[in-house]
Design a protein around this nucleic acid. Structure first.
Length: 110
DNA sequence: AAATTGACCGCGC
DNA sequence: AGCGCGGCCAATT
């Protein structure tokens, strides 16, 4: 652990710090890591994080609050179910009041 | 070993 | 105001 050799390890760490009932965007995480332009990389990190149980990737959505990666959660609406189960209202793969549930790592963690 | 994709975001026209 | 493209790092084929 403490393997800072990878950009991913850092992403996992932030994802794990996401409180329940809260969501964040790829760009926010990327920006917190100092790579605002590497938002795509965050998506890849999640792909690996899929093997890790400590990383709630279902709390990570895109900038619009849309569950872009719900297809990677098993091909079902599992991701939406998980969010709703935590108190986040999701409609048609889009989070309602996304701005209200938005959790900024560099603003909350700072 | 090289080329392409990948759960994105911000800017340009 | 709407559509398109380039950029970032790494993994996959």
């Amino acid at each position: 652990m403490s393997d800072k050799s990878g950009f991913f390890e850092r992403v996992y760490e932030v994802c794990r710090k996401i409180p329940e009932g809260r969501v964040t965007s790829y760009g926010a995480i990327a920006k917190y890591l100092g790579a605002a332009r590497s938002a795509r990389m965050v998506g890849w990190a999640m792909n690996s994080s899929h093997n890790l149980e400590d990383v709630p990737a279902h709390r990570v959505v895109n900038r619009k609050g849309i569950l872009t990666g719900k297809h990677h959660f098993g091909g079902s609406n599992a991701m939406q179910q998980l969010l709703e189960a935590e108190g986040v209202k999701v409609q048609d793969l889009q989070i309602i009041d996304f701005q209200k549930y938005f959790w900024d790592p560099m603003k909350e963690l700072s």
